[in-house]
Write a protein that binds this DNA or RNA. Sequence first.
DNA 1: GCCGTTTTCGGCCCGACTGTTTTCAGTCG
Length: 587
Amino acid sequence: MTNQEIAKLLKNVATAYTIKDENKFRFQIIAYLRAADTIGNLSGELQDYYYDNKLSQLPGIGKTLKDHFTELFKTGKVSHFDWAIKGIPESVFVLTDIPGFGPKTAFRLAHEFNLKNPESAISDLEKLAHEGKIATLEGFGEKSQADIIRSIEEFKQGKGKTTRMTLPYAFEISERIIDYLKQNPAVLQVNALGSLRRRSPTVGDIDIAVASNEPKLVLEHFVNYPSLERIIEKGDVSASILVSGGRQIDLLIQPENSYGSLLQHFTGSKNHNVHLREYALKKGLSLSEYGIKTIKTKKISIFSNEDDFYHALDLDWIPPELREDQGEIELAKQHKLPQLIELKDIKGDLHLHSNFPIEPSHDLGSDNMEAMLNKAKELNYEYVGFAEHNPSQSKHDEGAIYDLIARRNENIEHIKTSNYNVRIFKLLETDILPNGELAIGNKSLEILDGTIVSIHSLFSLNKTDMTKRVIAGLSHQKAKILAHPTGRMLNIRNGYQLDWEQIFEFCNKYRKALEINSWPGRLDLGDGLIKLALESNVPLIIDSDSHAVAQMDVQKYGVFMARRGWATKHDILNTLGYNKFAEWLKS
DNA sequence: GCCGTTTTCGGCCCGACTGTTTTCAGTCG
């Protein structure tokens, strides 16, 4: 069962509670939604937390939910959930997936029109709306009927927040919008916030904050964005629009002198803010996007920057990547937050695919080694590793594979004679075959400084066999790094099954590194597994997996993931200088 | 149902926006 399916299950329980008795279940509803939020935004699989007995570490998951999940993973269902949603038509849970449909609206419509069939509930409702039947209900009008028709249309097209963007994609959109907003003189400051600022691997909508003393002018400018599709809402200090491609942009505005509170509020996460506000309440303070209110005197302190906002609560400033309610508030109080790794700490990129004609099993790079070295120099790297895919087994015998690798090595030696100031490691990205053997023989491996190993076939292997396969592959003395360890492709496929506890134990014992692959479509490992790996003292390495010079800039995304996983530079191997790194590679 | 620098019991974030209302309910972040 995927995280999204489990999160939906929890939301369904909250929906059912809301319909049955909102007051009685008030706090259960909050708890279920909070847990759903945690799980929906988790970058590791919930099931892995269960296997590692770490469910209780997750915010919002206490004893009761832990027991429910144990039942879920053992039996495939939870009797308490079944009990909770009993009596609510299944159609309701289908309708609540549509933006604008909450529990009350969904239940009311399902009930009034007797929408029994969940398969057809959405199209049945659409038909009723077109027939003008919804506007006749008390509490509904022509406008809400039209809204329902449009919501369903957009939902079917996957617009708004129905589908999530990858982080790098969202980055690009946000930069275009920010450039546009800056054209207006009423805009004094502008930042992308929300999950984008927290560097979440996928982003639902793009949140933008603006400092301005003339919010009306800013809003007017905003809703005239060239690729506007429609205005979702527009008030006095905020607005939401849909832009071409069906992406939702939310804008919030505050005067410059209270911009710090807005940054804090709009960065989230929701769970971080809820926790922070509960913490503040105990000090007699109430937090909002406007500032910090002393409850007794009703006096509001305002903050132009975020540091002061946190300091006013006796907390250190918390990096946005950590604001996921995973204990960061308590550590900020004790001045014990980790010093997170930064992009400038990276001293090399060990996973580069050049265009050297090595006749590989998978895609070849498009630029030559010299061009990639020039770029490495530009990035201030001390060293790189060329790691083309191994020559394909199907087209070459072992001798031919050896010759190709030897020729590539000669090419590298030749380049070394020119002075590039960047040291080179002779690596390779070698497939781990389904039986756990590496795709090239010992003789070929011997002429490498080391090899990256990875899974590129038979993803469907069961957990036990896949774990054995990976460990067998990593066991070779030359195998040093497991590339894109989960095999996930964001929004395309989940990773394969692995027993992480075993993998971590093995990597720690034999000092094998797990890669944080910065490739925009992968971002693999994600932050959840990074955090768990660090708790097991596993060496990590951040690589771009570049197939072209221009792609070498994606390293920042891997650093974002590492930061979200609480990594300091001491946790990441390629922050080491050349000598120390070479020493590890040789070990 | 969760959680702990007033608490293992008794609390539980705060506000914007919209539509259909004459003062609020529902949804969202």
